[in-house]
Structures are given as structure tokens and as C-alpha cells.
């Protein structure tokens, strides 16, 4: 009887609840987005080579909205500045901001990966207990 109950408790520990799995999914989507952001920022760099400032504005606009939605506030703010510099056709400021945003992307990626790793370790510990 006790064994049966222990097994049941263990199973309950192993089963992620829907809130956990939702957070996990959110985290996965955010990681996927962060992995793709450098390509998008490099895309802006290429557009800058072609002096197409209106396209830069559109590219920045897209990143601003989506990064904000993923709660990447600093990245969203940085790209919003880039949008403004595109209006002013300020090449140097745009290059600087792309560089800064790249660093923010790296930092956010590290943060998220560390968080995911510790979450995974905690979860493994839970099973062994």
C-alpha cells in the first residue's frame, strides 16, 4: 500500500503541471527568438550597406515590437533608438546601436541558458529525492 502511494507521489513529482510546461514553452520560444536576433541585426547591417534607411526602419520596427512582447525591454528600447537614427540617416549611430544590441542579445541568451540549466538541475534533483 505504502509502495503504491510512494510511486504515486513520485509520479506526481515527475509530471510537470500545465503552468510549468507553459513557462517552459515560453522560455523555449524566447531562446529560439534570441538565437535568431543576431541574423536579424546583421540583416540591418547589410541594408545599411545599401543605404536603404526606410527598410532599416521597418526591420528595426519589427524587432522593437517582437522583442518587447518577449519582455526583452532593453533590446526593444535599443532598437527603438535605432529606428530614430534611421529617420536621421545617422549611419554611425546605427552601427553603434547594432553593436550594443548584439551585446544585449548575448547577455540575455546567457541569462536564459543559465536559468534553464538551473531549472533542469532542480528538476533532476526532485526526481532523485
Amino acid at each position: 500500500m505504502k509502495d503504491k502511494q510512494d510511486n504515486q507521489n513520485q509520479n506526481e513529482n515527475r509530471q510537470p503541471n500545465s503552468k510549468d510546461s507553459s513557462k517552459e514553452k515560453w522560455s523555449m520560444l524566447k531562446q529560439k527568438y534570441l538565437r535568431d536576433l543576431p541574423d536579424q541585426l546583421n540583416g540591418i547591417k547589410s541594408t545599411l550597406e545599401a543605404d536603404d534607411y526606410s527598410k532599416i526602419k521597418k526591420q528595426a520596427h519589427r524587432i522593437k515590437g517582437t522583442s518587447g512582447t518577449y519582455k526583452l525591454k532593453n533590446i526593444s528600447k535599443g532598437v527603438a533608438q535605432l529606428e530614430g537614427h534611421a529617420d536621421d540617416r545617422n549611419r554611425e549611430a546605427i552601427v553603434n546601436i547594432i553593436h550594443k544590441v548584439m551585446q544585449l542579445v548575448e547577455a540575455e541568451t546567457d541569462k536564459l541558458e543559465t536559468h534553464s540549466l538551473s531549472a533542469a538541475l532542480n528538476s533532476e534533483g526532485g526526481i532523485n529525492d
Partner: peptide, 12 residues
Amino acid sequence: DDDPHLLDIIEH
């Protein structure tokens, strides 16, 4: 929306 990443999060 032209950003597939935004579509992902909305779908979620």
C-alpha cells in the same frame, strides 16, 4: 504578422 517569432508567441 510578418514576424514568425511573434506568431509563435501569440499561438502559444
